[in-house]
């Protein structure tokens, strides 16, 4: 993934010491985190909660994806499989079995991990574009499985998924109540990813991203580290998909379609690969665009394509990556 890492290479830092603020964040990261939390807490009183929940679900999805590309250097082009299957399984469990929402979402994460294990195991045997192609091929298989399998509802998808009652206490039917659950899931996922990146495991992950043969020569069995990162990323993508299916009461083929895999690449790229906040900003930008440009119909894709090209040509580090570079900090 020589190319991916060079884009992900947004780490500037000219010899300045990084002071930790809290939760292992550096000071600029801590400020960004507080701004983000403030926004998450205040925004539902000004903006439409369903729109915000959509942003948060995709933000978590993009962060999960970024864990692989930004910190291990693996470009998965099949993350829709974990996101979509998470949506199906959470939706089916909630609707057909009446599973409570907290458990249904966890089941979405579990199916993500369960798929990610064999898929990752196969894909990490190859590097670079071949890795991406294997993940895409496997995701296409999941798509056709979803089209044919009886429980997914084929073209109709699973509809009228009940949001249920959280812990048997909070009725999630009201959008604002549901919003707090989604916000909690997002923040927990975000903090988990931050911890993964800054754990002993994360150190090895980043070493592999930077120079895989060298990591091998230090005695690390790099395949095992890549596989664990892959499974973690797939599990979080499944949680994101499951949460989304509860928000919109629906799980459809759109969620497992390859364009969904493409969208998450776009979000991470626009926001900034290898930055912890970048994918969140990228998801917000793309979802907002899709919402406000919806009246242009198919032109949304053209505009998205133009943005993608602009990103690759003009600001390769992405929005947050460029800001971090300009300020010479890590975000």
């Amino acid at each position: 993934m020589a190319d991916g890492t060079s884009i992900a290479a947004s780490g500037p830092l000219g010899g300045q010491t990084e002071k930790e603020a809290f939760l292992g964040f550096t000071r600029p990261q801590a400020i960004a985190f507080l701004v983000m939390v403030a926004f998450v807490l205040v925004s539902p009183f000004f903006l439409y909660p369903v729109f915000l929940m959509k942003i948060l679900c995709f933000a978590l999805f993009a962060c999960a994806f970024n864990l692989l590309i930004g910190y291990v250097g693996l470009l998965s082009f099949g993350h829709a499989a974990y996101f979509g299957m998470g949506a199906y399984v959470t939706g089916y469990a909630a609707k057909a079995w009446g599973v409570p929402p907290e458990l249904a979402i966890l089941m979405g994460g579990a199916i993500g991990a369960a798929l990610g294990l064999p898929f990752g195991w196969l894909a990490i045997r190859r590097a670079g574009i071949y890795f991406s192609m294997i993940t895409l091929a496997l995701a296409q298989m999941v798509y056709f499985f979803s089209l044919q399998a009886p429980f997914t509802g084929g073209e109709d998808g699973i509809q009228a998924i009940p949001r249920g009652t959280l812990f048997g206490i909070f009725d999630l039917t009201a959008d604002l109540t549901m919003y707090w659950l989604v916000a909690a899931v997002f923040l927990a996922g975000f903090l988990l990813i931050h911890r993964i990146v800054h754990s002993p495991f994360g150190q090895v992950m980043k070493a592999i991203r930077d120079n895989e043969p060298r990591a091998t020569s230090l005695g690390y069995r790099v395949e095992q580290y890549k596989l664990l990162a892959f499974v973690l990323s797939a599990a979080l993508a499944g949680i994101a998909g499951g949460t989304k299916s509860l928000v919109f009461n629906i799980a459809t083929l759109t969620d497992v379609h390859w364009t969904m895999s493409g969208e998450v690449v776009l979000m991470s790229l626009v926001g900034g690969l290898g930055t912890i906040f970048g994918p969140v900003v990228g998801a917000a930008v793309i979802v907002t665009m899709q919402n406000y440009l919806a009246e242009f119909g198919a032109w949304v894709l053209v505009i998205q394509g133009a943005i993608f090209i602009a990103c690759v040509l003009a600001f390769r580090r992405g929005i947050l990556g460029e800001i971090a570079h300009a300020l010479r900090v890590k975000l």
């Binding site: 911890r195 754990s199 002993p200 495991f201 150190q203």
Partner: peptide, 13 residues
């Protein structure tokens, strides 16, 4: 490396 395998992703660096 002296720690053995570093799969503990939940612990702080």
């Amino acid at each position: 490396r002296a720690r053995g395998a570093s799969f503990d992703f939940w612990r702080s660096e």
